[in-house]
Design a protein around this nucleic acid. Structure first.
Length: 486
RNA sequence: GGCGACGUACCCAAGUGGUUAAGGGAGAGGUCUGCAACAUCUUUAUCGUCGGUUCGAAUCCGACCGUCGCCUCCA
């Protein structure tokens, strides 16, 4: 299986420009994306990030690359406030819920995957946990100390930022700026306020602590990503992704740790997705406009949320609003209507329809061109709408003379692009839930009864049947060929 | 205060130097329909402001205004 011909270009945050994608190992892509800290339910921001990278991974696979997708689960070390101060987020949540930290971790990890599953986000190939990689992290700290990049102070170990000359290359800051820019002078045993923790001492009241050469404690937040990406993807790998707000200090620190420890470049391409706003304002817990996925999923179908997210580019901010989401839902429905027609049509002619095959090929090309340009899903979707229109009229024009080979080709292209790449098609277009032979029989009866009423011009009663059915969530459609329901 | 992104129609959102500025939603009008929904057709922008570069700019440069992000935990 060779690679599809492609001309993939992606925006590299490190160089601040679009670059041609050239994998380190031909045909193979190693990608690491910062996963969630599992101390609460996932929200729309998580959805945007993980749906974006899901499509990126799916597209690489579509092109024929063998992908290893690693996404961590942060279950320790992520502190609540000021750099390297404050309580561990998991520990705090455990205290609040009166649970073991690992119960909190387990609950929210499951909740996270549940939400991602319904959004049709494929699971990463490896979902390593920080707490499962303590020995690796201790080892890395030791390496950093041996090489002179880290120092111990009273059971804490810090990375000395001044020793790593490239610190700031990703986020575009200098250590000097950071020293001056620090708002609050934190009282600590750090040599420099910009230094960050590799290992934090924990007193016996801490619920999560492990043994280390520096006493009992727990690892710093940035360290896990360096360690686990190293372990599963190697010292240098292709793509590291995450949310923009993590560029600094998280990703900057990852680079420092990994490159200092390994003496090799850490990541070839950095990709950052933008944030979600709600009605023009940043979504945040303190602002009270926080949308958890579980809440959003009560009002909207999961694939409509997914579609909505993909109608804007991953590097653009996404402005969430009820009207925007409703618009997306309708648009997606329009695509479904035509796709369903395609999937259920019967073709009779063995002759290839050359003209329409050209249209199919043009669509594939337009779609791929859009995706090749830094995963431009909005453009790919626009191309889809254009094509969907043509498809609908192709089927309508001569339904009896549809070409078998052309319909087959059409079906497989739609499946490949809309389902495999964008992940937008439902499992099946069969009538869902209540559908059964019995139900079909009842509906047929009602429809024929209503047809009779309409023939007798008893529209009042006919409309009442339709209205009552609408209330039950069943829509009747009167077409020239007869009445259908869904 | 420092760094960065963005500003395209009523809403969402592509386009980043050159024929009529994609696409979706909403609105309006027509076809279809007993009516409605569905479907379908038509229609709705000169691109934040001002100035510059250019034969030519939404697209490059500068200033200004505005929105947002990061600098502190956040996808």
């Amino acid at each position: 299986m060779g690679l599809k011909e492609n001309n993939l270009v992606l925006y590299n945050t490190l160089s601040r420009k679009k670059e041609e994608f050239v994998p380190i190992n031909p045909g193979f892509v190693g990608i690491y994306v910062c996963g969630p800290t599992v101390y609460g339910d996932s929200h729309l921001g998580h959805a945007k990030s993980y749906i974006s990278f899901d499509v990126i991974v799916r597209y690489f696979r579509h092109l024929g690359y063998k992908v290893r997708y690693v996404q961590n689960i942060t279950d320790v070390g992520h502190l609540q406030s000021d750099a390297d101060e404050g309580e561990d987020k998991i520990a705090e949540q455990a205290r609040l819920e009166r649970l073991e930290p690992m119960e909190v971790v387990e609950n929210y990890t499951r909740s996270y995957f549940e939400d991602m599953d319904v959004l049709n986000v494929l699971r990463p190939d490896i979902s390593p946990r920080a707490s499962g990689h303590i020995p690796e992290q201790v080892e890395m700290i030791q390496t950093l100390m041996e090489k002179g990049y880290a120092y111990e102070a009273d059971g804490n170990v810090y990375f000395e930022v001044e020793k790593f000359k490239d610190y700031g290359k990703l986020s575009g800051r200098s250590v000097d700026e950071m020293r001056e820019g620090h708002r609050v002078e934190v009282k600590s045993d750090k040599r420099n306020a910009a230094d960050f923790a590799l290992w934090k001492k924990a007193d016996p009241t801490h619920l999560m602590r492990w043994n280390s050469p520096w006493g009992k404690g727990y690892p710093g937040w940035h360290l896990e990503c360096s360690c686990m990406s190293n372990k599963y993807l190697g010292e240098t790998f292709d793509i590291h992704g995450g949310g923009m707000e993590n560029k600094f200090p998280h990703h900057e620190s990852e680079i420092a740790q990994s490159e200092a420890a390994n003496g090799k470049p850490f990541v070839k391409y950095w990709m950052h997705n933008n944030m979600v706003n709600v009605d023009g304002v940043k979504m945040g817990k303190s602002l009270g406009n926080f949308k958890t996925l579980k809440a959003a999923l009560e009002s909207y179908p999961p694939l409509a949320i997914r579609f909505f997210i993909l109608t804007s580019h991953y590097r653009a901010t996404l402005d969430f609003s009820e009207t925007a989401l409703q618009a997306a839902e309708k648009g997606l429905q329009k695509i479904y209507t035509v796709v369903e027609k395609v999937f259920t049509s019967k073709a009779l002619s063995e002759k290839t329809d050359d003209a329409f095959e050209k249209e199919i090929e043009a669509y594939e090309a337009a779609f791929q061109e859009a995706m090749d340009d830094d995963f431009n899903t909005p453009r790919a979707i626009a191309a889809t709408f254009d094509f969907i229109k043509k498809t609908a009229s192709w089927i309508e024009r001569e339904p009896d003379k549809l070409s078998v080979p052309t319909l087959e080709k059409l079906t497989s292209v739609l499946k490949s692009l809309l389902d495999d790449v964008l992940g937008l098609l439902p499992e099946s277009f069969e009538k869902e839930e209540t559908s059964s032979d019995k139900m079909d029989g009842v509906m047929e009866l009602l429809i024929s009864l209503r047809a009779q009423l309409r023939a007798e011009k008893n529209f009042a009663l006919a409309d009442e049947i339709r209205n009552k059915l609408t209330e039950l969530g069943i829509t009747l459609k009167d077409t020239r060929e007869g009445t259908t329901w869904e």
